[in-house]
């Protein structure tokens, strides 16, 4: 509770520190507009045209429905990865054998290109929600798993000894000694897992489904509708930036104040 209040209190100052970021985004948009003036509307529509299309799309119920579909798939996939990845990672971290055995498997999971997973999933699950959700899970699971594994593997033996010497009861050991350390590893892993999930969901949709943002992107491509394609990209990037910079980053800052 105290913690949430502190995040809210520091929030305005955090937002105020974002002017630099806004300036660099505006610079990027200016370059984009230059690109439009050089290459023309078909190749690269102007930012203005893109944002007009975007506003029109957001007013359209069908588009909102597509966004919701994508959001649903990404959240289910990411949610499963989060719960399973975190708990398996923590568990594996507590046992030397398990963490040793899981390393090569994780390397295989990380090393396998997502596109290969999509093909396999299409064969296994056909065209639909399951294929997309499965791909999202296999792509974000290893990231979260490794984060949790590292968190438990790197627990400081000296601090454990110290907590033993003060005979800390188990709940204090967990909340005061283990949890903050593990969380400082797991939380960034969640953030990168989320970013991964959001990218993969669109890719899987583009190839394997007939609805969602990815499918809309495929339609825009076949109709050479560049403004719509770009507007969809803006939706994806905008939502990711919103979640990352407005929600997660302030939490991360508070949680990691103690880090040097």
């Amino acid at each position: 509770m105290k913690f949430t209040l502190k995040i809210l209190k520091d929030f305005p100052a955090y937002l105020w520190s974002g002017w630099g970021a806004i300036a660099s985004i505006l610079l990027f948009i200016a370059l984009w507009d230059m690109g439009n003036q050089i290459y023309g509307n078909l190749v690269l529509p102007s930012p203005l045209e893109t944002f007009t299309t975007l506003v029109a799309m957001l007013a359209d119920e069908n588009v909102i429905a597509e966004i919701k579909t994508t959001l649903y798939r990404a959240s289910v996939g990411f949610g499963i990865s989060l719960v399973v990845g975190t708990s398996f990672g923590l568990l594996a971290g507590f046992f030397a054998t398990a963490s040793m055995m899981s390393r090569p498997i994780v390397t295989i999971l990380v090393g396998m290109p997502p596109i290969a997973w999509i093909v396999l999933a299409m064969i296994w699950f056909g065209m639909g929600d399951e294929t997309v959700i499965f791909t999202v899970i296999v792509a974000s699971f290893p990231i979260i798993f490794v984060g949790a594994l590292q968190g438990t593997r790197t627990l400081d033996g000296d601090l454990k000894e110290m907590s033993d010497s003060f005979k800390l009861p188990w709940h204090m050991k967990f909340f005061d000694v283990y949890f903050p350390h593990i969380f400082s590893y797991v939380f960034p892993a969640w953030v990168s897992g989320l970013g991964m999930a959001w990218k993969i969901v669109v890719m899987a949709e583009l190839l394997a489904t007939s609805d969602g943002i990815g499918a809309s992107l495929a339609v825009a491509r076949s109709q050479l509708d560049t403004p719509t394609a770009l507007a969809l990209v803006v939706i994806m990037i905008g939502s990711l930036m919103f979640v990352e910079y407005i929600i997660l980053e302030p939490i991360k800052r508070e949680v990691e104040l103690w880090r040097s």
Partner: peptide, 19 residues
């Protein structure tokens, strides 16, 4: 061997709270 995520006072109080 201080807990890096706790401030000075909370670190000192650790043993007392454990007791």
């Amino acid at each position: 061997r201080l807990l890096p995520w706790k401030n000075v006072i909370d670190n000192i109080a650790l043993g007392l709270l454990a007791a």
